[in-house]
């Protein structure tokens, strides 16, 4: 190898490292599948194999192509069934299902499929995909006191009717399964689920290390 080739390959090496590093640096804010252990350690464990996406019975998990960062990591684009009986949720079915909830079988196939533990085995009580929020300016319940589909479909009783006839989300009860968002008849979705934690996306490098260590401490 001559000198020119050597310099070129070193330059290429540094450029590729820089590209790969920069494009993986910024934290993306998307919903991850159930069981994801915090955004930082999730991204460091996920090998983007999309087994969770292939196995999801509702086809709700999709590779995330919304931003240039963390391309291919799975995101919950559709809704999560949580229970095997709720693969096709409807308001009436879910209302009837609520009584049999305690003995019903959980789905969590994505967690079982994950080869690296980016999705961790959890109990139902620990499930927190995100938190639903109601947009009062478009919600039919707040505008015309009708609809209430989200109230019917939520099997966790997280969506409640308030005194004025509007709906509100009880945040501790909400698991963020997105079934309410799926059933919402408003085109731009008056009820929408956002990620549970909203840390600042900056200082990713330092945060990463701290986040991982903290996780090891807890477990």
């Amino acid at each position: 190898m001559n000198r020119r080739g050597f310099i070129l390959s070193i330059a290429g090496f540094l450029m590729l490292t820089a590209t790969l590093t920069l494009t993986n640096l910024k934290e993306s804010k998307t919903l991850r599948p159930p069981g994801a252990v915090g955004e930082e350690s999730f991204l460091s464990l996920c090998i983007r194999c999309n087994r969770c996406a292939d196995i999801c019975p509702t086809k709700g998990i999709k590779p995330d192509n919304s931003s240039l960062f963390a391309i291919g990591a799975p995101t919950l684009a559709g809704y999560c069934a949580v229970y095997l009986d709720l693969i096709e949720p409807t308001p009436s079915k879910n209302r009837a299902f609520k009584k049999a909830k305690s003995s019903a079988e959980l789905c969590f196939r994505c967690i079982a499929a994950c080869p690296t533990g980016a999705l961790k085995r959890i109990e139902l009580e620990e499930l927190k995909i995100g938190v639903a929020e109601v947009d009062r300016s478009t919600c039919l319940a707040w505008l015309y006191n009708t609809c209430y589909r989200c109230v019917d479909i939520c099997v966790f009783d997280a969506v409640k009717i308030t005194g004025k006839g509007g709906v509100e989300v009880n945040e501790p009860l909400c698991v963020g399964c997105k079934q309410c968002e799926y059933i919402c008849p408003v085109p731009e979705k008056a009820i929408a689920v956002s990620p549970p934690h909203s840390d600042s996306p900056s200082k990713r490098l330092g945060n990463r290390r701290l986040g991982n260590r903290r996780l090891e401490y807890e477990s």
Partner: peptide, 9 residues
Amino acid sequence: LTRTPSWCS
């Protein structure tokens, strides 16, 4: 550096 499987993306 990034603590991510960076090639996978």
